[in-house]
Write a protein that binds this DNA or RNA. Structure first.
Length: 212
DNA sequence: AAAACGGGGGC
DNA sequence: GCCCCAGTTTT
């Protein structure tokens, strides 16, 4: 059975129309700067969206730009973003990122994969989200949800997220690239969960080879 | 009490 | 590839 991805995504879009993926939903046209999207995504790694949201609302109330973050002490910064996972490491990374952006990029977030990957705490997931959501570029943000679901439904057969990204770039129609992360995060947190997925209330179970 | 959750980096 | 990094939520 080969899933019809256009139909699959179409059904999901209808069913998750009102669902808001907190961090994946951040975008310039929703009042976020690219730098805020970058910071939110760095903080969201290995932590739940709800926790990230609380952390960034506290942080952004005090500092919204690289220069403002650099004015905070590292302990103060760590206190503001607590309790995201690895908050001490991330506080250090945030200062380094801010310093690099100020010193090497004229205060603006770089818009290429190469430059983004040089920022500490930024990997492919974060870089691709910034490129897609922040700069409106054609990039696919493969997080654990996109990776898991793409494999579970048999659309790709890959071991690492990077392999998934390459497979999706080949197979997935480009019109779905920007939206796939937000859509699959919502679907993956509520229905297609890692453990004990709620197949009983899944709108696409009839198309799914993993349907239990 | 234990396992599950979600990326990046160093080796 | 393997293993480490910290905290909250779910079982």
């Amino acid at each position: 059975m080969v899933v019809n991805i256009d139909l699959f995504i179409d059904i999901l879009e209808k069913n998750f129309k009102s669902w808001k993926a907190p961090v994946a939903d951040f975008a310039p046209d929703r009042g976020r700067t690219v730098f805020e999207i970058l910071v939110s995504t760095v903080l969201s790694s290995r932590t739940k969206d709800e926790v990230t949201i609380k952390a960034v609302s506290r942080l952004f109330a005090v500092a919204r730009t690289p220069l403002e973050i650099l004015e905070l002490g590292e302990d103060e910064l760590a206190g503001l973003i607590y309790p995201v996972g690895f908050y001490r490491i991330k506080a250090g990374n945030l200062r380094k990122i801010s310093r690099i952006i100020v010193r090497e990029h004229g205060g603006r977030v770089p818009d290429t994969m190469d430059e983004l990957l040089r920022l500490p705490g930024v990997g492919r997931k974060t870089a691709n989200l910034v490129l897609a959501q922040g700069f409106g570029k054609n990039a696919i943000c493969v997080d654990t949800h996109v990776h898991r679901i793409s494999n579970r439904i048999g659309y790709v057969s890959t071991k690492t997220p990077e392999q998934t990204e390459r497979a999706l770039i080949k197979k997935l129609p480009i019109k779905h690239w920007a939206g796939i992360n937000k859509l699959f995060v919502g679907f993956g947190q509520t229905i297609c969960r890692p453990i004990s997925p709620r197949c009983g209330s899944c709108p696409v179970s009839s198309m799914c080879p993993a349907f239990i």
